[in-house]
Simulated assay, not measured.
Amino acid sequence: MTRYAALLRGVNVGPGNRIGMADLRRIVTALGHDDVRTYLQSGNVVFGAADGADPERLGGDVRAAIADELGLDVPVLVRSGAELTALAGANPYAKAQPDEVKLLVAFLAELPDPDRAAELTVPGTDTAEFTFAGTGRDIYLHYPDGYGRTKFSNAYLEKRLAVASTTRNWRTVQALADLTSEH
């Protein structure tokens, strides 16, 4: 049994795409997954699935079940516990930035086109910094001036990379790594 985290994009952040965490747990459990737990109200669900399960398929199954049961089309990105542990242990900004609120990770639905990734830059005078993680499907983000007013947002990343993404703060990334650890 392998632990996974499914990250739903854009739920419970405004009046649309409202999903109760009890409904999310029920949906993921009905798909046959074990030890299903949600974290916060922002669409994070951890679960156990068969070893060797395809994370992309797992995300597609959760997305389809949400659409069938709740009538919402929500992108679902899945990472294994091993991937989250590796991410949590390798943030290049964590030691230099004691304020965890200024650290985030953007999870990409797929590898971006290499040319688009190479051309990604922070707009204008924005002070944000970014580093692609080892797999290339995740991006470490550092916002020295905070995330609230940046133009280097999730929407900006999606537009520039032409890939769906969802962003989580550093505390959430660490919590999900802990919740999906195999011990």
Score class of each variant (00 low, 15 high):
Tyr93Arg: 09
Asp138Met: 00
Ala109Lys: 12
Lys102Thr: 09
Asp34Ala: 15
Thr125Arg: 13
Val76Gly: 11
Ala96Val: 12
Lys151Trp: 02
Gly48Tyr: 05
Ile66Met: 05
Asp115Leu: 12
Leu157Trp: 07
Gly32Tyr: 11
Gly52Thr: 05
Glu182Val: 03
Val13Gln: 14
Thr125Asp: 14
Thr85Asn: 11
Gly16Ile: 04
Asp113Cys: 12
Pro114Ala: 10
Glu182Lys: 09
Pro123Cys: 09
Leu176Ser: 05
Pro15Trp: 07
Val122Ala: 05
Tyr4Pro: 01
Val13Met: 13
Met1Thr: 11
Leu72Asn: 07
Pro98Thr: 08
Thr172Glu: 08
Asn91Arg: 05
Lys151Ile: 02
Ala133Tyr: 02
Asp68Pro: 00
Ile66Lys: 07
Leu157Tyr: 09
His183Gln: 10
Val46His: 04
Thr125His: 12
Leu8Asn: 04
Thr121Tyr: 00
Asn17Leu: 13
Val62Asn: 04
Phe47Tyr: 12
Asp145Tyr: 03
Phe152Gly: 02
Gly59Asn: 03
Glu83Lys: 10
Ser181His: 15
Asp113Lys: 10
Asp115Lys: 14
Leu179Ser: 00
Asp138Pro: 04
His142Ile: 01
His183Thr: 13
Ala164Met: 08
Ala65Gln: 15
Val46Arg: 04
Ser181Asp: 14
Arg160Cys: 09
Leu77Phe: 11
Asn17Val: 05
Thr29Asn: 06
Gln97Tyr: 00
Ala175Gly: 00
Thr127Asn: 07
Ala162Thr: 09
Tyr147Ser: 15
Ala106Val: 01
Met21Gly: 03
Val101Thr: 13
Asp54Val: 05
Leu108Gly: 03
Tyr147His: 12
Val105Arg: 09
Gln41Phe: 00
Phe132Val: 03
Gly136Trp: 04
Asp35Ser: 14
Asp54Cys: 07
Thr172Ala: 04
Ala6Thr: 09
Asp178Cys: 00
Ala90Glu: 13
Gly81Ile: 06
Gly134Ala: 15
Leu84Arg: 08
Gln97Pro: 07
Asp68Leu: 10
Phe132Gly: 02
Gly148Ile: 05
Leu141Ile: 03
Leu7Pro: 03
Phe152Lys: 03
Val11Asp: 06
Leu108Gln: 01
Asp34Met: 10
Gln41Ser: 08
Ser80Gly: 14
Trp170Tyr: 10
Thr180Val: 06
Asn154Thr: 12
Ala88Asp: 09
Leu7Ile: 15
Asp73Met: 13
Met1Asp: 06
Pro98Val: 10
Pro114Phe: 09
Leu84Asn: 12
Leu8His: 00
Arg171Val: 02
Ala128Leu: 07
Glu129Gly: 08
Thr29Glu: 14
